[in-house]
C-alpha cells in the first residue's frame, strides 16, 4: 500500500458516497445514468468474488464490502425508490455494446483461463468503459449539475492516482499488471475531456455535442 493507492481508494469512496448522498438528499436521481450504476455494480460483483475465496487484509475486505453495498444501494435508489425522477428518456446508451465486446475480450486476453480470473478480467475491462453511459447522458441533456461533476471529478482523480500507484509499484516493487494498467490508462483517458471542461468552465459542465 502506498500513498497514491490509499488516496485513490479514498477518492473512489468519496465519489460513491457523494453520489449516494446527492440522490438521497435531493430525493432525485435526475441527471444520473442508471445504466452506468448498473455497470459499476456488475464490476464490483464480478471483481470481488474473491471475497469468498481469499483473504488479503481487513482494509481490503471492508472496502470491497462497502463498494459493493453502495453500488447496489445506488442502483436501488435509482430504479426503485426514486424511479419517478430517473431520466430514462436520456439514459439511452446501449450497454450490451459494452458488455458483449468486453466479455469477449476477457475470454481472449487474461492472466489465466479460469472462471474467477476471467470474471476478474471482465470487471477490469468493464470498469474502464462503465462511465460512458453517464457521459453520454450528459452530452444528450447538454449539462450536468455541480454535484454530478464533483462525482465525476472524484472518479477521475481515483483513476489518475491509480496510475501513479502503478508507476510507484513498478519502480519500488518491480510489480506490474499489464491488464490493469492498459485498462486503467483507457479509463483515465475517458475522463480527460471531462477534466478539461471541469477546470476551464468551472463546476458547471456542459459537454458540447
Amino acid at each position: 500500500m502506498n500513498i497514491f493507492r490509499l488516496a485513490g481508494d479514498l477518492s473512489h469512496l468519496a465519489a460513491i458516497i457523494i453520489l449516494l448522498l446527492k440522490i438521497w438528499k435531493t430525493r432525485s436521481c435526475a441527471g444520473i445514468s442508471g445504466k452506468s450504476q448498473i455497470l459499476f455494480a456488475l464490476v464490483f460483483t464480478t471483481r470481488y468474488l474473491d471475497l469468498l475465496t481469499s483473504f488479503i487484509s481487513l482494509y481490503n475486505t471492508c472496502m470491497k464490502i462497502i463498494y459493493i453495498g453502495c453500488a447496489y444501494a445506488t442502483v436501488h435508489l435509482i430504479y426503485m425508490k426514486f424511479k419517478a425522477t430517473y431520466d430514462g428518456n436520456h439514459d439511452t446508451f446501449r450497454i450490451e455494446f459494452l458488455i458483449v465486446p468486453v466479455g469477449g475480450l476477457s475470454f481472449l486476453v487474461n492472466h489465466d483461463f479460469s472462471p474467477l480470473e476471467i470474471l476478474w478480467t471482465f470487471s477490469i475491462y468493464l470498469e474502464s468503459v462503465a462511465i460512458l453511459p453517464q457521459l453520454f447522458l450528459i452530452s444528450k441533456t447538454g449539462e450536468a449539475e455541480t454535484i454530478t461533476t464533483h462525482y465525476l471529478f472524484c472518479l477521475g482523480v481515483y483513476r489518475a492516482l491509480y496510475l501513479f500507484n502503478w508507476i510507484w509499484r513498478f519502480y519500488f516493487e518491480g510489480f506490474f499488471d499489464m491488464i490493469a494498467i492498459v485498462a486503467g490508462v483507457v479509463q483515465t483517458i475517458l475522463y480527460c475531456d471531462f477534466f478539461y471542461l471541469y477546470v476551464t468552465k468551472g463546476e458547471k459542465v456542459a459537454i458540447p455535442s
Partner: peptide
Amino acid sequence: EDGKSAKDEL
C-alpha cells in the same frame, strides 16, 4: 511478481 494480476488492489 512480474506481469501478475493486481488482486490486492480494489
